[in-house]
Design a protein around this nucleic acid. Structure first.
Length: 240
RNA sequence: GCUUACUUCACCAU
């Protein structure tokens, strides 16, 4: 029967993950084990409500049950929670235990970790993971590249960011809207707004339409420069 | 199989 799953899912859909956890415990007490999908959805719900500690607690509880084999998604939610709590060493341990359990970390695992390291200004560690991906035969996707490019931009290493974008092109991974916004943002932050506009044009040539992010990034770029004329000019251009 | 990650600013933290 999938009644356990339906019950838990309903609570999760109502944004009541803590009640779902109580019910989960009652189910366990009477020998009912909901499917892994329910548990994964519960973890995801906790994470989306920023209850990272609770997510990790639930993760280790499930781990201790035995008999339930966790999957990549389950581990990824634990890695993500540890990263959000700023406990990167734990996040890495979780990634390693994933490998120890014959599960291959995927691009999600890597991107979440890389983004955590970048935010902690540990670019070298992020880069190590980025380099590790091909070694471990994990395909780098757009998010993985975007994460690394953003980290480098924010660290002020624009040349490094450009070279990763080159790698991306060489690997045949198509830059997307986020890639462009990230590069445009990096240039704006460095005060190189004219170059950012060149990239904007390039983006349009690729058939990508600028979105709300693109506009605020450029507006912020101009206001950072204190160039009111250019800002007004850009505004009017945009309004056409 | 299904469900998760990346980009602006502010806030918060620092």
């Amino acid at each position: 029967s999938n009644a356990p799953h339906l019950i838990l899912s309903s609570y999760i859909d109502l944004n009541r993950p803590f009640q779902a956890i109580e019910i989960l415990h009652k189910m366990r007490d009477v020998g009912i084990s909901p499917p892994l999908l329910s548990l994964n959805r519960l973890l995801e719900s906790l994470v989306s409500q920023r209850r990272y500690k609770d997510a990790l607690d639930l993760f280790s509880e499930i781990q201790n049950w035995g008999g339930v084999s966790l999957d990549k998604f389950t581990y990824n939610k634990a890695v993500q929670s540890a990263v959000k709590l700023g406990d990167l060493e734990m996040a890495v341990r979780l990634k390693n235990s994933m490998e120890g359990n014959r599960m291959k970390p995927d691009s999600f695992t890597y991107s979440v970790l890389m983004s955590g390291f970048c935010k902690e200004r540990r670019l070298d560690d992020a880069r190590k993971l980025f380099d590790e991906m091909p070694e471990k035969r994990v395909a780098r996707n757009q998010v993985a590249y975007n994460t690394m490019i953003d980290g480098l931009c924010k660290a002020g290493d624009l040349e490094g960011a450009f070279s990763v974008r080159e790698q991306m092109l060489e690997a045949g991974v198509k830059p997307n809207l986020v890639t462009y916004n990230t590069v445009i943002g990096g240039l704006c932050r460095a005060g190189r707004v004219e170059e950012a506009k060149v990239v904007l044009e390039e983006m349009k040539e690729q058939g990508l339409a600028p979105d709300g992010y693109t506009c605020s990034i450029l507006f912020d770029g101009y206001s950072r420069l204190g160039d009111s004329d250019a800002l007004v000019g850009f505004f009017e251009e945009t309004m056409e």
